[in-house]
Design a protein around this nucleic acid. Sequence first.
DNA 1: ACTTGTCCTGTCATGCCGTCAGCTTACCGA
DNA 2: TCGGTAAGCTGACGGCATGACAGGACAAGT
Lengths: 215, 215
Amino acid sequence: MTGQVRTVDGRVAGRRGQATRQKLLDCLSEMLSSSPYRDVKVIDVARKAGTSPATFYQYFPDVEGAVLEIAEQMAAEGAGLTELLAGRSWVGKSGWQTSQELVDGFLEFWRKNDAILRVVDLGAAEGDKRFYKIRMKILNSVNNSLADAVAELQAKGKVDKDVNPAAVAGSIVAMLAAVASHQKGFQTWGVKQAELKPNLALLVHLGVTGKKPTK
Amino acid sequence: MTGQVRTVDGRVAGRRGQATRQKLLDCLSEMLSSSPYRDVKVIDVARKAGTSPATFYQYFPDVEGAVLEIAEQMAAEGAGLTELLAGRSWVGKSGWQTSQELVDGFLEFWRKNDAILRVVDLGAAEGDKRFYKIRMKILNSVNNSLADAVAELQAKGKVDKDVNPAAVAGSIVAMLAAVASHQKGFQTWGVKQAELKPNLALLVHLGVTGKKPTK
DNA sequence: ACTTGTCCTGTCATGCCGTCAGCTTACCGA
DNA sequence: TCGGTAAGCTGACGGCATGACAGGACAAGT
């Protein structure tokens, strides 16, 4: 029951309209990858989509509105990140594997959607609740699972009592997101992609379990 | 020897000119805190500074150019973050203290400069080398110290050999930066500022030494 | 008072924004 | 088949930001 897709002035969009709308979104997505967010103009998106600016405004209130739409679509996919953690173990060798796969999946997802995620991150940091919510939606899936894992280990006495599972999980997730969006940066620091992953996985494992992984 | 401050058309700026220039920078700084980066317009900055857009363009090529200037100033201050780590120990109780003070200082610095740091982060993520360099300048001070600390512990055999100091240090620094810029976010996750810090410090300590701190 | 170089702004061409009226196209029922 | 209705698109327009320039205001030294 998401309701039908509607134009700004309230008409319901038909087949053709939806196609145009999607084309505009696709073109916007491309533009976000190739030029700074600040310089993305409605007219450029429209031109790229082979239509006119007026058409753009029929479907979106402004660039930001369209960006939110793209972000929403991505967030829906991003919910799949939960599977990286569902039912996984954090003890012994399988704990190390869980950690590695989480890092792998996370970095991959971020790499695929880096342009839009940059903008979402900015919006969230600027305090825009709409972007903030989307960021939460993506990170929550991972965050909650991690927090649960920590809490569980804590209940078994394997993790100190004064640890706050939510704080630790949140920090780890933030780290993953930050490293992912500055992946290129590490190369300039003399750290190769392939080297980065296991070290990141190590930090994740340490954070969750408080112990070095058994490899 | 940074050379004198110059206008866009090559004149050297005198006392009065420098004052106006600085006022424009200050106003821009304020605007960045109060409105989204994308919506910051030259005309608004000029109005706020009680001058005209033409004056702005005399000193800066565009908004981005002025932002770089502000960022540069901040980066100079940020170099002081090194002191949070210079000559500190990572063993025993003092290790725990080092970790705590690092987190404290880092979050504080970020909180003070959050608006401009947001923009720098975005610019860097978008691949703009000028922003990237500034981000490095700030983080390098901390990053290098951390990497050294890890390498040292590694030489003493207290940290596994297959750990890459640069990768670990970079990831930790990225975590600090990310958590700092989304501090508000944690509150919505039910994590209070005061709770966040020790948990973050714990993660830092774990990452650097591989062991839980002795408190 | 006059000169000199700094500093600021009025003005202008250009281009994007965001809206509207109006035209074209697709769909549907009679 | 035909006409009605709603969807879909665009040209055109006022408004505003951009960025450049030339000329006027101002301070400081002579």
